[in-house]
């Protein structure tokens, strides 16, 4: 297996990450995040590289990686839309929103559009956006009160290549509610 490019390219970042912790093994999750940032998902060679960097077994890296739902072990779309499926969003129509997105994108939950642009996911974990239910995240940037109309607008912005943070700036959840 070849060494992934990020090991050399992000050498300084890797050293800085390891230096943050009293013990090297704590760098596991930050390195998994870094690998995923580079590739969009975590491939076998990333697992092997992290095991090598930290001096631990591949199976340990694999085991840690599989524990966390935000580490993706398969290729994802450039944009990952994650609909919150927990209680407050569920009460506010998250299931209907999900069905709408499936139909609008022509894919099922867990799938990626054929052009590789969008992956649609539903999370059972509450994403702490209950004041903007139903809520979703675009590459972990929040969008709240997602009506079908707002969902359409979000998808249009994605198709234009908009930055997820900018999408959230427009569709995010204000901290203080108007009276």
């Amino acid at each position: 297996m070849s060494t992934p490019a990020w090991v050399e390219k992000r050498k300084q970042d890797i050293e800085e990450i390891i230096g943050r912790y009293p013990q090297k093994r704590s760098a596991m999750m930050p390195l998994l995040h870094l690998a995923q940032e580079e590739r969009g998902w975590i491939a076998d060679e990333d697992v092997e590289a992290i095991a090598e960097i930290l001096g631990v077994s591949k199976s340990l890296v694999e085991s840690v990686c599989s524990f966390y739902s935000l580490f993706y072990r398969r290729p994802m779309g450039k944009y990952v839309i994650t609909v919150c499926g927990n209680i407050a969003c569920g009460l506010s129509g998250a299931a209907e929103l999900t069905r709408y997105l499936e139909q609008r994108l022509g894919i099922k939950v867990g799938e990626t559009t054929p052009d590789g642009l969008i992956t649609l996911l539903v999370t059972g974990e509450c994403i702490a956006a209950c004041d903007g239910a139903p809520a979703l995240q675009v590459n972990l940037e929040y969008c709240g009160n997602v009506t079908f109309e707002r969902a359409d607008e979000i998808i249009e912005l994605i198709k234009k290549g908009e930055d997820p943070a900018a999408i959230s700036d427009r569709f995010g959840i204000p901290p203080v509610k108007a009276l």
């Binding site: 943050r20 930050p30 524990f67 966390y68 935000l70 580490f71």
Partner: peptide, 11 residues
């Protein structure tokens, strides 16, 4: 020193 450590989705 304050180190920020990011989780990855686990209640």
């Amino acid at each position: 020193e304050i180190t920020v450590h990011r989780g990855a989705g686990a209640y």
